[in-house]
């Protein structure tokens, strides 16, 4: 591994100042699972790493006003095991549990999972300088596109690799960001940006900014309807949710396609629905036609296969990834069916 300097600031202000000082040469390190691979492969070459490990208050899960506050340094294993997440934000616990391997889940963090870089092997190859690295072409167009996107590509055709981002999207999570100009929060749907907006990055973090927390709202703050179940530790979330992930290997693999579904019920009526897809687009992709179809339906009347058929309105598969279109429809069909039957 090429040498670098490792710094563990003791405060957020210090971390922000260090990150902002030499943005081109400095990178944030959380768990390091993704970043250290990039450095070993020569894809990233920071001269200085700023760690968040020494900053108090960034790790752990706290109940706040009906919802949960997830520290960016919380490990994926901690998310997967947390009783309130398992009970009330089930899709998130499932996404965490299905992510990578036990060894990575013990080190990998929520913030790192959201900010990880794409897996496109042309981007990851040490000798290619693709558009995402500031080059002048996408090598996948003439190469193998099996794992790339079927919607939302624009010169670059990555898929966003995060499982937790897909699950967080169906709970209307907000991302809290600290930076040189203070703290701001944004809906998770606005945090991720596609190549049409910026080829060189996958999220809206500006130089010097970092993710500090993810906020999971309780039912009072999101339009998901009245509480249907009392959750663990006084948290009530009125939704049934589910995360399904299709992949080539049963473990340690990124999603070919994944789907998170959350519905809020009032009696037998679906008051609100959220459906988000992973593995199909450069950002976590909200399947809004499915949400619109489900909203207002009686549970018994839902045609899961029809819901599945609405998931990708205008797919634009590449040479080798046409399989993702029926896979997406089938996975959404299965997820909607399971959620309707009590999930």
């Amino acid at each position: 591994m090429q040498p670098f300097q490792y710094i563990e600031p003791k405060s957020l202000d210090e971390a922000v100042a260090l990150l902002a000082a030499q943005p081109g040469e400095t990178q944030l390190i959380a768990g390091g699972s993704d970043l250290l691979s990039e450095i070993k492969e020569g894809v990233a070459a920071p001269r200085r790493l700023v760690s968040l490990a020494g900053i108090p208050g960034l790790r752990g899960i706290r109940e706040t006003g009906g919802g949960l506050e997830l520290g960016a340094m919380t490990t994926i294993a901690e998310l997967a095991q947390h009783p309130a997440i398992r009970a009330c934000y089930t899709a998130l616990a499932q996404a965490a549990e299905e992510l990578a391997t036990p060894q990575i889940r013990n080190v990998g963090t929520l913030g790192g999972n959201l900010a990880q870089r794409p897996r496109c092997w042309y981007y990851r190859h040490p000798q290619t300088v693709c558009l995402k690295k500031g080059g002048d072409r996408c090598y996948a167009l003439a190469g193998v596109s099996k794992y790339l996107c079927v919607t939302g590509g624009d010169r670059c055709y990555i898929v966003h690799p995060s499982d937790t981002a897909v699950a967080l999207s169906v709970f209307d999570a907000r991302v809290e960001i600290a930076g040189p100009r203070g703290t701001r929060t944004m809906p998770i749907g606005e945090f991720f940006i596609g190549p049409g907006q910026d080829l060189l990055r996958e999220n809206g973090l500006e130089p010097g900014e970092l993710v500090t927390r993810v906020l999971l709202p309780g039912q009072d703050e999101i339009p998901l309807g009245p509480p249907l179940q009392r959750g663990v530790g006084g948290i009530s979330v009125p939704v049934r949710s589910l995360y399904l992930k299709a992949r080539e290997r049963e473990t340690g693999d990124f999603a070919l396609v994944s789907v998170a579904v959350a519905v809020a019920l009032e009696g037998d009526t679906i008051r609100q629905a959220r459906v988000c897809l992973g593995g199909v687009a450069p950002v976590p992709y909200r399947a809004r036609p499915v949400e619109e179809y489900l909203r207002g339906q009686q549970v018994a009347d839902v045609d899961a296969a029809h819901a599945g058929s609405l998931a990708l309105p205008n797919p634009r598969p590449m040479a080798d990834n046409g399989y993702k279109v029926p896979l997406t429809a089938n996975l959404v069909t299965r997820a909607v069916g399971e959620v309707m039957s009590g999930g």
Binding site: Y6, E8, I29, G32, E41, S51, T101, Q103, I104, N106
Partner: peptide
Amino acid sequence: CDRGECGACTVLLASRPVYSCQVLALQVG
């Protein structure tokens, strides 16, 4: 593999299995 994929470097860190190739010595604390 030295890339956090094969598991041959697995050790326990605070009783949890981790890939020791993907943890910096300075991160251990």
